[in-house]
Simulated assay, not measured.
Amino acid sequence: MSVISISSLKDQAGEVPLIAVVAAQLQSRATKTTKGGKPYLDLMFADSTGFLNLKIWSETPLYPEAEELPLQAIVRLEGEWTQNQYGINGNNVSWHRLDDSAIADFLAGDPVVRKKQEKDFADITRLCDSIIDPRLKLLCSHFFVTMGERFRRTAAARKNHHARRGGLVEHVAQMMRAADLICGIYPELNRDLMIAGVLFHDCGKLWENTYPEDGFGQIHSMHGEMLGHIPLGIELVNKLWRDLIESSVFNDFSASKPATEDVRMHLLHLIGSHHGSLEFGSPVLPKTPEAHALHHIDNLDAKMEMLRDAYAQATEVAPGIYDRVFPLPANLVRPLREFENDTPAL
């Protein structure tokens, strides 16, 4: 039986049991108890496409083995899978450890996801290369040289949207493509600032939501926990900016307009305001056209990703109506199909 990814499992599983095999890495294990006092293990597995929670009940033969399975172990999960509004359920599940060759294939990631992320990264570098302001262009290049590999294995979030290894690249690429188009519609937007702002708006997540080189579980860091990605992003951009000043590459632009310091402040403002409101974590409200545009592009891309995930896993409770999937606010309705002209030609 061929191995499928976690995202494919979520796409295919429904009320009728699906017999399937998934390769995954154990990320966490917690011992819990039902309201009736029945103990069980809550295991979190991951691959390059997403996460899978699996409950192992105490009376099953697998329970003792699940207690001893080391964290970060990579296994082949075989079982009968169903899905409801609460997620994936596994029945008659068994597993075995992968050999070195299979582990290497697993760590390389899902081929479809890897190909998409490579295209997305190419789009990001292409659009950054199109920046006219040499200061912002140099800053982007310095970021790719010093942080490119870490950037490419970072998620955009711990859950809800693009919560997978490389998810930040997917999120940034789609936002950057949208920003490029929107700047052609609204001439008051500074395109160079928008492209750079998209690249750096979530760069603090390189400490908040990054992954190790050899696994698919997000790393918890003290910097990410105590500061959060917005202060970390501001600090990173300031550090990269100082690097360029100290290397004298900005000396040729001392008479350029706008002033170099103004460019830095406007870019930092995009990072600080991109959540759009104080209650959602931004230390400052959007105060420029680019800040308002960036916030809405960010929110739109996150929502569209949530919708894609929700349609893939939601249960159809009535014809064309699906259960609400957190964090979306309401039940979903099947999207309207594209127009097709079925009228016979005269």
Rank of each mutant, 00 (worst) to 15 (best):
A23E: 14
V75D: 02
G272F: 10
L136Q: 01
F45Y: 07
L294R: 12
G233E: 01
N160Q: 09
H296E: 15
G215P: 01
E59D: 13
D309I: 07
L71D: 03
H220Y: 07
S256R: 11
L62A: 15
S94V: 15
A122M: 04
S256Q: 12
H96Q: 15
E78T: 15
Y322R: 13
T49M: 12
G37W: 04
E67Q: 13
E149K: 14
D100S: 06
H171V: 03
A24L: 06
F200A: 09
R158L: 09
L189F: 10
V249G: 00
L107P: 05
G184F: 07
W95S: 03
S256D: 14
A259Q: 13
F280I: 08
R177K: 13
C203N: 09
L62P: 03
D100G: 00
A30K: 15
A312S: 15
K303A: 06
V16F: 06
V21H: 14
E305Y: 12
H274W: 10
N160Y: 12
E80W: 03
R164N: 02
H201Q: 03
G50N: 03
A104D: 14
N53F: 01
D11N: 12
E246D: 15
E235F: 00
L9Y: 02
T82G: 03
A293I: 07
L294G: 12
Q27N: 10
N341S: 09
A156F: 10
T33D: 08
P283D: 05
R126M: 06
T33S: 11
P344N: 08
D11T: 13
P319M: 02
T125Y: 03
A318C: 02
P283C: 02
E235K: 00
R264Y: 05
R150N: 10
L9A: 03
T343Y: 13
F106Q: 12
L270M: 12
L307I: 14
D120F: 10
P283W: 09
N92V: 05
D42R: 12
A122Y: 01
R152Q: 15
M194Y: 05
D262G: 07
R264W: 01
L227S: 07
L136P: 00
V249W: 04
V325R: 08
F144H: 12
I74T: 05
A293M: 15
K137H: 13
M175I: 02
A330N: 08
P327N: 05
L267G: 06
A314T: 07
L18I: 11
L71M: 02
Y311E: 00
A259F: 11
A310S: 05
K38N: 00
L54H: 04
L346V: 03
Q12F: 08
E316G: 01
L227P: 02
G14S: 03
P70H: 01
V169P: 00
M194C: 07
R153M: 09
A330R: 10
I230P: 02
T31I: 11
N209F: 11
V145S: 13
S273K: 05
L168W: 04
R165H: 14
T31V: 11
D252R: 14
I103H: 07
L206E: 07
